[in-house]
Design a protein around this nucleic acid. Structure first.
Length: 115
DNA sequence: GGGCTGACCTACT
DNA sequence: CAGTAGGCCAGCC
């Protein structure tokens, strides 16, 4: 299903990713109570209006790689934004072991307000 | 309704 | 570890 509420849930999840961390598309889909819809998450981020102010750059694919072709405008921008937050790229790949966001209830409850 | 596309994922070579 | 194949699901002709 594709209700507006589902979209908002995904947006909220992305907003909950703390700076200096990354999450995978599948992970976002999972946390948004939408398992198996990783591609749909990607679609939403592509469609997301700037006024939502989503930290879309903190979302990468399961291999820890940016999902844009290397050398493209978007790729370069995303990488720069992440590096500014302290995320380190080694051979163009993020070490998910080190930087992947681990969901925790305290973060969810006491983290920065999503709206 | 049918067929193609994609900011994906997993498993298997 | 790199490359491939198949599966997946929502959107858009």
């Amino acid at each position: 299903m594709t209700s507006k509420r589902d979209q908002q849930t995904v947006y909220q999840t992305v907003k909950r990713i703390p700076p200096g961390c990354v999450a995978t598309y599948g992970q976002v889909a999972d946390l948004s109570n939408a398992p198996g819809r990783a591609r749909w998450v990607g679609y939403l981020l592509r469609q997301s209006p700037p006024e939502e102010k989503l930290p879309w750059h903190r979302v990468v694919n399961a291999k820890g790689r940016i999902s844009f072709p290397e050398g493209s405008e978007k790729h370069t921008m995303q990488r720069r934004l992440l590096e500014e937050e302290g995320v380190v790229f080694t051979q163009g790949v993020i070490d998910l072991k080190q930087f992947q966001w681990i969901f925790s209830l305290p973060d969810w409850l006491f983290g920065p307000p999503p709206e």
